[in-house]
Amino acid sequence: MSTVTPIQPRSGFTRMDNDLYEALIGAELSGRELRVALAIHRQTAGYNMESACIAASYIAQMSGIRREDVSRAISELLRQGVINREGGSRSPIGFAPVGEWKIDKKNTHPNKPKGAPQCGVSSTSNVAFLPHNKERNTNTTPDGVVADAERQPVEPKATRQKLTVDACPYQAIVDLYHQALPELPAVAILNPGRKRTLQSRWRESDVHRDLGFWADYFFQVKTSDFLMGRVPGRNGSKAFRATFDWLIAPSNFVKVVEGNYHA
């Protein structure tokens, strides 16, 4: 009896290019990145399209991954060249040629062969035993009194290496803001307070430490009528218009990334 499950034409099926299939198998992607990549493939190749406009919320519904995590995974896949997109966060998305992928090496601690433990040998037994770390040589007098003790040298403890984080490119982020959003108030002074806030956003996630993420972030702002001041205020009040400081503030930053803002 065959163990191969036949394709059911009535329920539909999605064909995957062998090179792409094998590349996804061998790529060192995280679990979320791989699931998002498969969802993108389903929504493109599954409908005989090379690219498609796919909302992060729809992929979240398909995969069971939180929307903000889907957005981060998409940013990582874009950064590593697995997928491509011409334009901002709402432009069509599709797979890039396998030869153009630049996957991060996530396994930075390869397995190394374990060295054999040092053992002492007993003259009365064939069983090897580990030497005691407090053993030391002593000089004794004829009557058995210890005259002097030579301490074994103590090796210095290994110092922990701190993980270094790339410095925040403050001016580059401000330049992206000016390029994408010339309608909003310009940043005239990059003062210490703004630098501290930007650095906090930069260090919050690996996804944020990418200028491509910031370019998409400001593009997303540009597509919002509310954030751009194109929505009239209530009861004749002045329309709200986002500023650079408002966009990089912690709570507002999360709202924009998750699309959870409204008039």
Rank of each mutant, 00 (worst) to 15 (best):
K162Q: 14
R67E: 15
V145P: 03
G81K: 06
D17C: 07
P156F: 00
S251R: 15
E100F: 07
A73N: 02
I74M: 12
A180N: 07
E135W: 10
A45E: 03
R67L: 10
G46Q: 05
V187T: 02
A39N: 03
H41T: 11
P153G: 00
V256P: 00
Y170H: 09
P192Q: 09
G31Y: 11
G12H: 01
A215H: 06
Q43H: 13
P110Y: 05
Y217E: 01
P113K: 03
P192F: 05
K222R: 07
E258G: 12
D69F: 07
D175Q: 06
S71Y: 08
P6I: 04
E86K: 14
G233F: 02
N139T: 15
A73C: 06
M228D: 00
S75R: 08
A249D: 15
F253P: 03
P153L: 01
P192A: 06
R42C: 11
S75W: 14
D19F: 08
R136Y: 13
R151Y: 13
V165I: 13
F218S: 00
E68R: 15
E86S: 15
Y261F: 13
A172H: 10
I248A: 08
P9K: 10
R35C: 14
K114Q: 07
V187Y: 01
S91F: 03
K195P: 04
D245C: 12
Q199L: 06
G94T: 02
P156M: 01
T44E: 06
Q199D: 12
R90F: 10
V187E: 02
G46S: 07
F226R: 03
A37S: 04
V187N: 01
N235V: 03
G233N: 01
C53M: 09
P182N: 01
Q8S: 11
K222T: 04
R72F: 11
N84Y: 14
D148H: 14
V165Y: 12
I74A: 02
T5M: 11
V231D: 01
L181E: 00
L247C: 11
G12Y: 02
F129I: 07
R35D: 15
D143A: 07
D17T: 06
A56Y: 11
P232A: 04
R241Y: 04
A39R: 01
V98E: 00
P185G: 01
